[in-house]
């Protein structure tokens, strides 16, 4: 097979640059294979994250020719001729080379009120397949955080990170809201605390999802519609005004279950 030139970003928080590695390309290889071969030979300290190498764990996220993708699921023979650029995910602070600090995502995950289930009857719950299927789609998520990376709300606007959970956590919240056992109401939470309104549904999250989850159509838009019902319904608003009621706060409507 012919040689291929890999333009790989090397560096850390103090700066970095592209380095070129020209290496033989074998049949059917994926980008991660080539990275591994560079590690084993020319650059043993080339930092990259990976675990399963089968598209199941979501560790090896990077940007290949500018597109957020999993390195283990991107076959070399599908890329156009010429040098292949590999850069770290842009949205998160760099640690070194292709490795970024994704703790933003873990911080957001920790804020979400978990499932508050109905009490379990003797012998376990009875749930119908049609009632679990919607949430099951979202639970396919492998937490590669490519949707978070591509989302311009935080990719291009650092200051929004404090107020915006990102697509990964919108599908998490949608999953909980559609779980037939759940008794929490996270609509105010997702609007007020998670910044659902920042999303302008440009659908890049759906485009990059390696699991093919319909993030926008099946999670974000249904959440927006649910928020409309809770917040922007003029009749309900009028009703509250007449009865001098106030809306439940996000913390009242959705609580973290006891350990």
């Amino acid at each position: 097979m012919a040689d291929v030139t890999m333009k790989i970003w090397r560096g850390d928080a103090s700066g970095g640059e592209f380095q070129n590695y020209t290496i033989e390309q074998n049949d059917n290889e994926v980008v991660l294979d080539v990275i591994h071969r560079i590690q084993a030979t020319e650059a043993p300290d080339l930092a990259c994250r990976w675990n399963c190498k089968a598209g199941k764990c979501g560790s090896c996220s990077a940007e290949i020719n500018g597109k957020p993708r999993l390195m283990c699921m991107t076959r070399m023979d599908t890329l156009p001729e010429g040098p292949v650029t590999v850069t770290p995910m842009k949205t998160f602070p760099i640690i070194r080379d292709l490795v970024t600090d994704v703790s933003f995502n873990y911080a957001m995950a920790a804020k979400i009120p978990a499932l508050l289930p109905k009490p379990m009857p003797e012998g376990g719950y009875r749930l119908m397949q049609e009632d679990v299927e919607r949430s099951q789609e979202f639970r396919k998520c492998i937490e590669c955080f490519l949707c978070q990376d591509v989302c311009h709300v935080i990719r291009d606007h650092e200051d929004n990170k404090a107020n915006y959970a990102g697509p990964r956590f919108f599908i998490r919240i949608a999953e909980l809201e559609m779980n037939p056992l759940d008794t929490n109401d996270r609509r105010e939470f997702v609007r007020e605390d998670m910044g659902l309104g920042y999303c302008n549904i440009t659908k890049c999250c759906t485009e990059v999802c390696p699991e093919g989850i319909h993030i926008t159509d099946n999670a974000i838009i249904p959440l927006k519609e649910r928020v409309v019902a809770a917040n922007y319904d003029p009749v309900a608003w009028l009703g509250r005004k007449i009865r001098r009621q106030t809306k439940k706060t996000s913390a009242e409507a959705a609580v973290q279950p006891a350990p």
Partner: peptide, 8 residues
């Protein structure tokens, strides 16, 4: 949450 980003 924030910090220096990688890439050009």
């Amino acid at each position: 949450l924030s910090g220096v980003r990688g890439g050009p």
